[in-house]
Design a protein around this nucleic acid. Sequence first.
DNA 1: AGGTCCACTGACAACGGTTTCATTGGGAGC
DNA 2: GCTCCCAATGAAACCGTTGTCAGTGGACCT
Lengths: 346, 346
Amino acid sequence: MTIHEVAARAGVSPATVSRFLRGQSVRSPEAIRAAVDELGYWPSAAAQSLKSGRTHTIGVVVPDITNPYFAAVVKGMESVTRTENYRILLANSDESSEREDHVLADMARRVDGVILAPATERDQTPLKLRDSKVPLVFIDRDLMEGDEFDAVLVDNVDGARQAVEHLLGLGHTRIAAINGPPDTTPGRRRREGFLAALTARGVGIAPEHDLIGDFRESSGYQLTLSLLSLPEPPTAIFTANNLMTLGALKALHDMRVDVPGRISLIGFDDLDTGPLLRPPLTVIDRPMVEQGVLAMRLLLRRLDPQYVDDIPRRIVLGVKLIDRASTAPPKGQHVPPPRARKARPA
Amino acid sequence: MTIHEVAARAGVSPATVSRFLRGQSVRSPEAIRAAVDELGYWPSAAAQSLKSGRTHTIGVVVPDITNPYFAAVVKGMESVTRTENYRILLANSDESSEREDHVLADMARRVDGVILAPATERDQTPLKLRDSKVPLVFIDRDLMEGDEFDAVLVDNVDGARQAVEHLLGLGHTRIAAINGPPDTTPGRRRREGFLAALTARGVGIAPEHDLIGDFRESSGYQLTLSLLSLPEPPTAIFTANNLMTLGALKALHDMRVDVPGRISLIGFDDLDTGPLLRPPLTVIDRPMVEQGVLAMRLLLRRLDPQYVDDIPRRIVLGVKLIDRASTAPPKGQHVPPPRARKARPA
DNA sequence: AGGTCCACTGACAACGGTTTCATTGGGAGC
DNA sequence: GCTCCCAATGAAACCGTTGTCAGTGGACCT
């Protein structure tokens, strides 16, 4: 089913069929349309790509699609591609930089652009992409010196700050953090925000309360157990992402620790089931779908020759605290007068 | 960066470079390898596709990637493609058959095969795919008369039966079901299993307890509210998928209904947060990642000319009940002696 | 009627690989 | 030293589409 068969049936040349399909005016549109319909002709994507150099496909690389956050981001992206005649080539990096490099190199020749939620923040940006001049947009990865890429971020520092202020406002002073890997933007920045907010209020943190996880549920679980085994456990825990929050909550359940009675828990990133958990989780929420939408818009814009040389953009989205029921004043303390806590619904 | 430049630099013809890259023995492998490395050459996927007619890409169409079940299935698929030098073109159908048709038609010319979790069970199978002879594997859609496709399913009937037996075993007799759409395989079969299991045990069901939802959280929520407003509400609810279970649980929370004290809840499909919910959810669990793995294996096998004409396969995976804490004997009743309930962990 | 203009047309050459086919050259065997 | 054989080679065709280019013919004007 090639354009030649259509041309033959319509009694014109392939070039004319091609012109008709691209919207140019031709002598006998009806004949061609009829031939196309009867034959059920669709142009070969491969031939078109070869000729035009465009695949109308966007590569999307995320650490793990089963993480609800990334699923939401990808969904946002797809809502954009859908209306713009683009499609998504999806790959997981499994949080491995090697795997990520491999995937990126593979994609370089198959897509018009890439959106990447990087496994790590290593400075050497994917060379294969740079060479092949495939536009790249980062999700959750801050721009580095010399980067010529766009990025869509959330205000990680402010999110951590909000969490800390919230806990301090409740009267906590022994606050622990289960951070992400320091070589990732969210891992690094959320920790920075956490420490800075504590320091700004003159509250110290014990080194054994400042932990580094890997953003996976199991590390949230393990590190929470280690916090519980301390001679002086914290009265509140801040977890740097959704999966580690879940791990922490599981550990607290398993150890029969009352939340928030004995330990308060606040995590970065909300979950669909957040309100239904035991207890309902107080979290730092960010616009996930929107982050995907913006990243895709940024990328498609850069694909437009008109904007291809614009300076890289860095979009930072705000975050907000959702006050549910996993945080409360520490045992034997009461809310300090200056900032009363808002009543929480049910 | 074409094969011609590599050939020129290595002092051979493009044909020889091509042969070298495809593993054939060549007079001067080192020279070619050097040229390839120095130039950073990667073959053009479009040109290869055009020539070979293969894209080495698999189209995956799911109703909604943010549903944890589909995310897990896709992850399983990707674990297979990764090792087989295939990649995944992902699209959401948003549970719309029109959208699904559109996506499928688009994919027909861009992929070697398609895995589809269909929005509905309509008999007219995607024509565009049939015409272009793109192999298709169904997820969660039973084969129909004349289908020449493979399918990977779970035992929906047995899952519903297990749920019913479990509730009956606890002493429930007023059991409601929030089913999925009857034009989907899981919607239809789970309802069939539910009704059959009740009938087999001689238990009736009031028509107003046999509800039809749309697999979305909101319908689980709404239908649960409607059940609660009945003069004789059920003592147990069976929800046909994860999202509707969540919706039901939310409604029960909002209406301050004690679960499982006043109403027991059991749903199809487990959730990562299942054990952490209030209460921990009793569910019918199925192997999600494995379902994706098997579907992809089936598809790649059919891509092999050797097996292309094998008769369609239909793989049915078993399901099992995970007994947590959202189900209990109905108020004022006790567990009937014949089948004692197993102690549940914490 | 003849000339000019212009919208439309088809032949043809790409795009970047792979495959066929005839040819080359070196080694083995006598 | 000559023949035979076969592995390796390059030229060329091809995959299906689109862009270029030099027409072609009809409409309109004088």
